[in-house]
Nucleic acid binder design. Structure first.
Lengths: 224, 224
DNA sequence: GCCCCCTTGACATTTTCCTGACAAGGCCAC
DNA sequence: GTGGCCTTGTCAGGAAAATGTCAAGGGGGC
């Protein structure tokens, strides 16, 4: 299950996309404008981006996005209106990982989404030493032994493990793992980190998978 | 909390911006002209720059600013009047990190400011000879050996290293690194500088990374 | 209803930060 | 050169802050 961000100003199209995608087991975030999209980008595993938006052309959003180190590798699927000049479209969607011309069939949409997710590594597996995360099954393994992680635990671990070495503040983690609608305290993160450490059977003598940077936040160990 | 410089000649707009930004927890500096702005640039973490200014077009200020090594990476958010010729706007705002067309909504403003600040503060590395600061990892390296710096130490070092050769008084450092709410003595800075020097293993025979300017303050060595 | 997960508060522990006192060093006047 | 004055370096103890830990309560799903 992945988080897909649908950027589309036409409500009917947006709802249609959402229904198809949710039915296929994905989580869907929605934005009607480029500005809204920009705020939600951090939470997305893949973006479905409409060609025309009220505030800014989709391509321009794409450019801005690509020049931001956080989103360099974020898969983007461009949605374009049917046009005879498909070459032109291709040129303009440069930077997108794939595109679809409207109207498109649901199976085709799902197939391309699936392919992109698999390709991007946001679906599939993350391997960090003896720790393996199977994102599709939502299952973690340590030395090939399945771990019993809850949803939040798994998502937190997966998020941190995706960028080893990089520090995230509690606030960033809340925003990107919990979602920005979360209104609780930042200490919640600590609790989940503690749970994870226990389940990962990290004993004090061996280096931790999840490192604390006092005064800053947490990070996944660089060389596990 | 960051320092935002609002460059806008229309008092009403300026005040509106200030209120929104202060409410969001930022500190705001204001300038009504390009000349005023130029003086305050050194204290800003991000600039909100109006397109039209009485003494000089905002874009020209932007150009001057970009060609000054001190401000090469200073994030600039351009404020433009709504215009049909969005392509023209795009061309002219080159060099800006983002832009907003007036009138804009407060949430959008805040979201973009937030995004820019995160991008600027947390991305990239600073390399000064054998000393490397990885801001994303919040980790310093000396000859590729990771250093164990505390939060304040890292932030102080990062701040000084960002502007090699430039002197900062203890008061400036307290304000910029500690934050304006800090109420302690200036000697605290000395203590942290001393800690840093020790951890950087600077021996008296080799030139120091952190230089003392008697009666003035500290600075990062120019050619490390 | 029951169970599991998430969240939160209280308390314990660890680490960092700050400060005051004293030592050392530079600068100037003589 | 040398003494005094002012600035900076050094050290260590205590305060403050951040994190770890534990346990209980609430809410949602089965």
């Amino acid at each position: 299950m992945s988080r897909l961000l649908v950027v589309e100003d036409e409500p009917a199209v947006r709802v249609g996309l959402r229904l198809s995608l949710v039915r296929a087991g994905h989580q869907v975030l929605e934005a009607a404008t480029a500005a809204e999209a920009w705020v939600l980008l951090g939470q997305a595993d893949l973006v479905l981006l409409d060609w025309m938006l009220p505030d800014e052309p989709g391509v321009r959003l794409l450019e801005r996005l690509r020049s931001d180190s956080r989103y360099e590798t974020l898969p983007v699927l461009m949605l374009t209106a049917r046009s005879g000049e498909s070459d032109r479209v291709e040129g303009l969607t440069r930077g997108a990982d794939d595109y679809l011309t409207k109207p498109f069939s649901t199976p085709e949409l799902l197939a391309r989404v699936q392919a992109l997710l698999r390709r991007s590594g946001r679906s599939g597996r993350i391997e960090r030493g003896r720790l393996v995360l199977d994102l599709e099954r939502h299952q973690a393994y340590l030395h090939d032994t399945p771990l019993d992680l809850t949803r939040r635990e798994f998502e937190l671990l997966a998020f941190l493990a995706r960028h080893p070495g990089r520090v995230y503040t509690r606030e960033e983690l809340l925003e990107r793992v919990w979602g920005q609608e979360f209104m609780g305290t930042a200490r919640t993160v600590d609790q989940h980190v503690a749970q994870l450490r226990e389940k990962l059977q990290e004993d004090p003598k061996s280096p931790l998978y999840l490192e604390t940077l006092r005064g800053v936040g947490y990070r996944f160990r660089e060389n596990p």
